[in-house]
């Protein structure tokens, strides 16, 4: 064999042939299976490494590496019309009210930078939100003492979800109308969405059109499909 392999006219010899293809196959599958378990850590490292490049090249606007994905449950997204839009607050309140977009903007403005976690495994850090704190908003309708939760109804039918009034009183929870220095874009729930960084994205209801105060939390859209009602990041939905 060794004598043959330098000869140019013996091309049909398989010198040094080894069955390594199956090992390569299993190696790739094994690396993939490991990624299923440790992908979050790897993803954090790679998005940190590629972020400067993605930002400079403008790629981050197209490819959601370390960025947003747009999840919806209806066939079309609600369209915001400033002239006709209103937010209704009712249920266990003394004074049910209807607010226009301008009424909402006139309320005390709160701003924050927080992290958005999606339950499917992606995260966006450093999101700049502007909006209204719930105690300022709900106070306008004068909640009754028996009100303990808020039911958020989206204009994206049939999406809805609940938060307890203890949750809505957490320091970084708001009804946001601004995002990263601009009005909330359509795909992020224009004109207003719930922001609660402590909980996974499905609790951050987009396109909110009605807030009904109730005595206790019910099951929202995803909770009726198996998700946890209490969606604390890292401690629910199979994590933590």
């Amino acid at each position: 064999m060794a004598a043959h392999h330098d000869l140019p006219d013996t091309p049909r010899e398989n010198i040094g042939a080894r069955r390594v293809g199956r090992a390569a196959f299993l190696g790739v599958v094994g690396a993939g299976v490991a990624t299923l378990f440790y992908g979050r850590q790897i993803s954090n490292l790679t998005s940190r490494a590629t972020k400067p490049f993605a930002d400079v090249s403008g790629l981050s606007a197209i490819v959601p590496s370390g960025g947003w994905r747009i999840y919806t449950v209806a066939a079309t997204m609600p369209v915001f019309d400033r002239r006709t839009w209103s937010l209704r607050i009712d249920g266990l309140v003394r004074r049910p009210i209807e607010l226009s977009y301008d009424d909402l903007l006139a309320l005390p403005r709160a701003e924050q930078v927080s992290t958005f976690h999606c339950v499917t495994g992606w995260t966006v850090t450093g999101v700049h939100w502007a909006g209204v704190r719930f105690h300022d908003l709900l106070a306008l309708a004068e909640p009754l003492p028996e009100a303990h939760a808020a039911h958020f109804v989206s204009a994206e039918i049939p999406y809805d979800d609940y938060l307890t009034l203890a949750d809505t009183a957490l320091p970084q929870v708001m009804l946001a109308y601004g995002m990263d220095g601009a009005p909330l874009p359509q795909e992020h729930g224009a004109p207003v969405r719930v922001v609660i960084p402590e909980m996974y994205g499905y609790k951050n209801v987009k396109w909110v059109k009605q807030i009904t105060l109730v005595d206790k939390q019910g099951s929202g859209y995803w909770e009726q499909r198996g998700y946890d009602v209490n969606a604390i990041v890292g401690h629910s939905n199979g994590y933590g």
Binding site: L36, G39, R40, T120, G226, Y227, N237, G238
Partner: peptide, 25 residues
Amino acid sequence: LFFVSGLLLWVGERNTDIRLGGTLY
């Protein structure tokens, strides 16, 4: 791997106990 991760995404949306953090990645 496409098949396994895709199936896990589908199942994980229906039973959150079967979620693995790196599936989508």
